[in-house]
Design a protein around this nucleic acid. Structure first.
Lengths: 219, 219
DNA sequence: ATTTATTTTTAGACCCATCTAAATTTTTAT
DNA sequence: ATAAAAATTTAGATGGGTCTAAAAATAAAT
C-alpha cells in the first residue's frame, strides 16, 4: 500500500508532532531520518498529493487523519514486534529497535492482530512505551522524569527518554529496569545528580544526565 | 545488503534450477516473478556484475556459490516464518505464504537463528518442505507422488507439489493433512483417479489432478 | 530598516527497477 | 537450407527516492 519510505516519513512526522507541534520543520525531519532537507521537501510534496498531510510552502506540515492513522499503525507494529523480540525471542531491550524498524513495515492487518493476541495484548513495549490499540488509540502516560522527583519520594521505573542502546546498556549495568522500585534519597543542587535506593542493600548515585532520561510513575 | 528484488530473483532462479537446470530461461524467470523478459535481462546483468550468477548472452544463467547461499538463506527464512505463522499464530497452511514472502526479506542473522531456536529447530515447514540449516544444507527428501503409488501400498502424506491456497483448501475440505496415513485401494486406468482409505471409516475418491500434487513417503 | 544568516525550495542529475517497442539471435518447421 | 516463429536482448522512457548546488523566502541582527 505505502512504501517503507513513506511510512518512515509519516512516523517521523508523527513523533515530532507528539513532542511539540512547532518542531516539525524540514530540517528536523531530515535530521531524524538522516537525509537531506531537499529530499524531505520532495517527499512532503508527494505525501501532500496523497492527502496524507497538509503542506504550505515554507510554513510546515501537519498530518491528516489518514496520515496519522498510518503513522500510528506503524508505531503499533513496531512496538508489538519489539515486544515479541524481547518476550519470545529473548532479545535484550537494547537490541530490539533495529530489527523492529524492518518488521514494522510488514503489511498484514490479520498478522498484526494475531501477533497482538499471541503476546497477550500487551499495553507497553520493552521500553515502557504504550502500544496503540487496533483502533489507533494510544494511552497518554502521565509519567515524570526521575530528575524531577522529590527526596523521600518512592517511584517505579516506567520508561526511558533516550532509547539508544548505549543508554539502555548503562541501565542494564546498574541494574535498573522497567518496574524497578526507586526511592529518591537526596538531590545535589550543584550538579543535579541524585542518590537513590533500589533495593535495601543497594544505594546508587546517578548523574543528572542519567536521571533526566528515566521516566517514573509515582506510587 | 541485497534488495528485496535481488533476493527474489535469486530465489526464483534457485527454485527453477532445483526443478531442472535446463529450465532457467529468461521467460521462465519472468513468468514466476510475474514480470517481463526485458526486466529479467536487465536484472540478470546486474546480478552477474555482482558475481551472484554466471551469465552468457542468449545462453542462460547459473548461480554462483555466493548467489546460491543468498537464495538458500532466503528460502530458510521463508520456511521458518511460515512455520512460525502456522505453529504460533495459528494461521492455516493455505494462509502463510504471502506473509512469509514479506518476512523472508528481514535482514538479521541473529533473528533468524533465534526464531529457529524458538520454533524448536523444525526440519520441515507447514507444507512439508525441508528447512535449510544455518549452514545452508538442505535435506533432499525422497518422496513420491501419490499418483505413482501402487495398490495395497500404505503411505504417509508428506508434502505438496501445488502450493496454491485453492489446492491446500481442497485438501482441508477432504481432511488430508501432513502426516495423514493413506492406503491406496485401487487405481483407475481410464482417468488416473484413485481410491484411498484415510481412516477405517473414510474411503475417498481422488482425481489424478489431486493425486499428482500430493507427495507421500513409503512406510 | 537594511543587511546577514538560516531555512526551505527548486533545478538538474543519478541509481534502481520497471516498462514498451524494436532489433537481434536462436530454434523450429518445411 | 531457408523461411517463419519464438526467445532474448537493446534502446529509450518512466517513477521512486536520493543527492548537490543554486535560488528564493524567512528569520535574526544590528
Amino acid at each position: 500500500m505505502y512504501s517503507f519510505t513513506e511510512e518512515n516519513y509519516l512516523k517521523a512526522i508523527y513523533k515530532l508532532s507528539e513532542r511539540e507541534p512547532e518542531s516539525i520543520t524540514t530540517n528536523a525531519i531530515a535530521e531524524v531520518l538522516e537525509t537531506k532537507a531537499a529530499s524531505v521537501t520532495d517527499m512532503i510534496k508527494k505525501l501532500s498529493d496523497k492527502k496524507l498531510l497538509k503542506y504550505e510552502k515554507y510554513k510546515g506540515v501537519t498530518l491528516t487523519e489518514k496520515g496519522r492513522m498510518i503513522a500510528v499503525e506503524t508505531v503499533r507494529k513496531h512496538r508489538l514486534w519489539e515486544t515479541f523480540l524481547h518476550e519470545k525471542l529473548e532479545f535484550g531491550w537494547d537490541e530490539v529497535h533495529d530489527i523492529a524498524e524492518q518488521l514494522e513495515h510488514i503489511n498484514s492487518e490479520v498478522l498484526t492482530n494475531k501477533l497482538d493476541d499471541f503476546l497477550g495484548n500487551p499495553s507497553h513495549d520493552p521500553h515502557g512505551d504504550p502500544i496503540p490499540t487496533r483502533s489507533g488509540e494510544i494511552k497518554k502516560s502521565n509519567l515524570m522524569l526521575l530528575c524531577d522527583a522529590k527526596p523521600k519520594q518512592k517511584v517505579v521505573m516506567s520508561g526511558v527518554v533516550d532509547h539508544s542502546p548505549p543508554f539502555l546498556q548503562h541501565l542494564n549495568k546498574i541494574s535498573i529496569s522497567l518496574g524497578s522500585l526507586i526511592e529518591l534519597l537526596d538531590k545535589n543542587e550543584y550538579d543535579g545528580s541524585i542518590e537513590i535506593k533500589l533495593h535495601p542493600s543497594s544505594h546508587l548515585h546517578l548523574s543528572k544526565e542519567v536521571a533526566k532520561n528515566i521516566l517514573v510513575k509515582i506510587r
